[in-house]
Structures are given as C-alpha cells and as structure tokens.
Amino acid sequence: MRFKWLIPAIYILFLLLPIYWLVNMSLKTNDEILSVFSLWPHNLTLDNYRVIFTDASWYSGYINSMIYVTINVIISVSFALPAAYAFSRYSFVGDKHLFFWLLTNRMAPPAVFALPFFQLYSSIGLFDTHIAVAIAHCLFNLPLAVWILEGFMSGVPKEIDETAFIDGYSWPRFFVRIFIPNIASGIGVTAFFCFMFSWVELLLARTLTAVNAKPISAIMTRTVSASGLDWGVLAAAGVLTILPGTLVIWFVRNHIAKGFALGRV
C-alpha cells in the first residue's frame, strides 16, 4: 500500500478547494476576479483587507458579532453548569422528560422563533442590542450546553462530591474548587460549541438587529452597492469570518470528538 496517503489527500484537497478559492479571491483585485481565470493572484493585493479594517461599517460587524457571541457563551455556560449538575447528580420527578425536552428545543427551525422574538424584543426595547441576540441564541445553545456538560459531569464519580462534603466543603466551594477543575475540558468544549453555533447563526441575528448590533454575517449578505458586488472585499470578509473559529478549535482540538458525542464516551 504505497499510495495509501492518496485517497485522504484527494479528500482533503476537495474539502480545501472552496476555502482556497476564497483566500485566492480575497487577494485579487475585482478586475482580475471578473476578467480572467487564475489559480493564484497575479496582482497580489491586500486592499480588500484594508477596506475591512478601516471602514467602520465592516469592522463594527466583527465587533458586534464577537460581543454577542461572548455574552451568549458566558450566559449559556454559567446557566448550564448548575442545571447539568442537577441532571447528573439528582433524580427528581420528570427529570428524564425534562432532559429530553431540552433537546427538542433544537428541533424547531430558528425561523419559527424569529417573528415572536422580533415582536417581543421590539416591545420591550431590546431590539438592535447585543444582549437581544445573545439571549435569543440561548434558545438552542443552552440545551446543547446542558447536554454536553451533563455528559462530562457524569464522568466524574459521585464519590468525589461526597468525599468533598465529608471533608467539609460547602456545595458552592466544592463546585468552584474541586468540581469545575475536574470538568475544565468539558467546559472548554461546551464553550466552543456555543461559540460555533452563535457565530454562524444568521437568521435570528439579522432579524433582531438593525444598525448598532448588526453582525458580520448580515453585513456580508447585504453588501450590494450601486457599483455592483465588491467581490474582493466580500472574500476577505469571508476569510476573516473563518479565522476566529479556527483559532478557538485549536484550543479544544483534543476534546472535540467527546463534545460531538455530547460528552458521553
């Protein structure tokens, strides 16, 4: 099997082709994109990136996205931690049904919730704020976070809790000093998944914002100016949108498979 590397190599090549093309486009001028077929930029330019980093209507999109994604990750993880602990450690009436019901929240398309959220947030003055998008994304991120964390928590023997209580730890102290360090990788994976879903979500983010909290994904899809589409700048924006995800995944690369299995391995 001298060529056993060949098939994965072809596979990866196919996967990377669109990403390469995006990077390729982002480094070309609009003229070159539209006029000739070139496998690599003949007139290499960073102008497209310069536009994004200097034009407030572009870079504010990134800032807005990062703000609401961060808020969402913090809310999701901090609310999911005690909830997941309860599901993992205690049995109470209807616990299994409730646990399953959490997941069913992901079964409805976000479009279903776009209208009620829009109306509700408008009437209480939350429309076009970062917190509005962050809370809306909890709709699907919080159940996911509870599921993933519950899996990781159930991997920690219950006897550790009891030993801590016997040693004299109060519950909050035990939770912060002993338990959270024990599931640190689980929290990392959970944060990553919340980040990922919140970062790529377009519909709710676009519906609930207008100017002040407009996310980058919404800006990218609306950039048709009088002079037509600015292909190069759009491609550069695309590249910059992929980057944060790549950075975050680097930190959880060793635990990500367990996260996809919702912590149950």
Partner: peptide, 11 residues
C-alpha cells in the same frame, strides 16, 4: 470515609 474506588481530587 474511604471508598472502594480510589477517590482523590485530581486537580
């Protein structure tokens, strides 16, 4: 209390 499983704080 000491359990049958080896219970310590790994962190």
């Amino acid at each position: 209390m000491v359990y049958q499983q080896f219970i310590n704080y790994p962190n």
